[in-house]
Structure formats: structure tokens, C-alpha cells
Nucleic acid binder design. Sequence first.
DNA 1: GATTACCCTATCTTTTTAATAGGATAAACA
DNA 2: TGTTTATCCTATTAAAAAGATAGGGTAATC
Lengths: 156, 156
Amino acid sequence: MQGAPNRLVSRNALFRYLRSMLSKKTKYGLKALTYLAAQKESKPVQISEIAQHENISQKFLESILLSLRKTGFLGSKKGKGGGYYLIKNPKEVLLTDVMRVLEGPIAMVPCVSLNFYEKCDDCPDEDACSVHKLMLKVRDSALEVYRNNTLADLIL
Amino acid sequence: MQGAPNRLVSRNALFRYLRSMLSKKTKYGLKALTYLAAQKESKPVQISEIAQHENISQKFLESILLSLRKTGFLGSKKGKGGGYYLIKNPKEVLLTDVMRVLEGPIAMVPCVSLNFYEKCDDCPDEDACSVHKLMLKVRDSALEVYRNNTLADLIL
DNA sequence: GATTACCCTATCTTTTTAATAGGATAAACA
DNA sequence: TGTTTATCCTATTAAAAAGATAGGGTAATC
């Protein structure tokens, strides 16, 4: 809005933009995956190396990589010379799958989620809900992006 | 991911999908705006009526409508027969503007926000950031939806 | 068998959202 | 003019979640 008094718009807005809609977990996870995808040799990379290179708290990254291993994206090797490595070819890793594991649902409201559907408690009829109607479109537009991009597309 | 063990995927995911990415403020705000836009007569509607009809806590709605008034979307009238009313024609109310006031930035990360840009503290070079690259696309896709829809499109 | 590096659980701090409370102000109407 | 109606405004609180940290367990390599 153009004409609105500045202080009133920005107060709420300021609070919001300090935090990101994307969780750090997802952010760090994506960075780590990209880092691994960009490796020339396919030998394990240590957590500490990724953490340093991407400015991530090592302990936090540890838990993220762990969950990426459990969900079938990464393999790991213990002991000296150990670390994490990509299991699949980056071109075969769809970002829809990555996002759903790291961030959860792609939809902004549970009632339009494909994989995590849940009825809204306050809304008696979804078909009569304006928010539902709008968020369906937003979900589809986001899905299109994630579906048409793989991990390989993130490498710069 | 298909093959991943169920309990491991769903634990994190469960937590995430209990909460919506869309704040209740935005949800309620959109519902209220749509309700007002759907009015046949253009006389003020009381908060209590909207709150009842849309299943919203009246006090919470009060603050939301207040902020919508301060940002130029709604007008209000005090006293008997008072209430809130839309200032513009629903066809002229772009959802980009509504979303920015209610929800804040449309981008999922500040570093790709058009109206609320801010550098990420952990990222030395945006052009070399895979997350930045991806989130630019997501932002654009969301923007397209919001730009091509007005309040009138939300009425069912 | 010592070192390396992943594995796992538990806890804590901070931030944010959502909601509530209580009263001030202004308009309408008798 | 005074009573009712309904918006206006500030402050507080409760609950949830994210992010980060701590500390030790386990397995593989040399």
C-alpha cells in the first residue's frame, strides 16, 4: 500500500521479516546437499568441512544430515575418512522430496496439502473458504517450481 | 520419499503440519475481507457479525481489522450502525498488497524479498547461494498468483 | 587399541503467535 | 443531554516452536 503511514505498516512487517518463512533446518539442509552434489570425487565429506564452508553450527548440521540419511538422501561412513555422501545422482533428486522431508508440507495451510492434508478446525466448509481457494493456487505454483528442479539445478 | 521408514519421516513432519505457514492473522484477515467484499449493500458490518460468521475470536479480529483500516483497506464507523466497510472495489484490491500487510514479505527468505530485502547474516555471497537461487523462483511463482488475483476473485 | 567421525537423546533459551483483558473514545439516537 | 453502541488502543500472558548446545555412545579405520 502506497498511501499508508509508514510507521504503522512497518511495525508488524518488521517483526515478520526478521524471521524467515524458511526454517534454518531447510536452509542448511539445502546448502549441505548442494555442497555434496558439487563434489567432484564421490568420497565422503565430513560434517565439519560442510559446516565450516557453509557457516553452519556443526552440531545443528549434524542432526540435519542425520535426518537426510534416514530419509534416504544421504549415505554415511563412520571412522577415519568417514563422512556423508549423496546416494543418488543430483539430477534425480527432486526438490519436492527434499522440501517435504526438511520443511514439511509445501502448502501454506494443511487443508490444501497433498501429502499432509488436514481439515481446518475453524472452517466448516472448505469449498466455501476463500483462503482455501487462494492457497490452492499458491501451492500449485510452488509445486511447479519444486517439481521442475532437481538438486543439480541448485549447483552454481 | 517413498522408501523411507514411516516413523522417521512423519515425526518431524507431524510437528510441522500442525502449524500452518500462513498465520492466523492473515487467514482471518483474508476471510474478513472476503466477507466484506461479498456484501451486497455497502453499509458498515460489525466486528461481531464477521467474527460469528467466520468463527474468529472477536477480540483478535478487532486488532486485525484495525490494522487493515490503518493500512488503507478498510474504513470504519463508530457508534450505533457502525462497523467496517471496504474502501475500494474488490476488483481493485490486489492480493499482493493484502498479503504484504497481513503476512509481511511474500518471499520465504529476506534475501529474495522485493519489499523487505535484507542480507542473510550467514551467507557471504548471494550469487553463490543455492537457497537464494531456488527461493527466487519460488517467490516469483507466488508473486504471479498474488498479482493476478484480487479480492473479487476470492468471493465464491 | 587408539583415534576419528558419525550417532543419538535430552535440555534450554529465545522468539513469535495467538489470545485476552480492560478500558478510552466517538457516534447515533431518544 | 445522556445513554447506548461499537470502534479504538495498550498491555499482558500462555503456549508453541525453532534453534542451538551438551554430553556421551558407537562403529570404522589405521
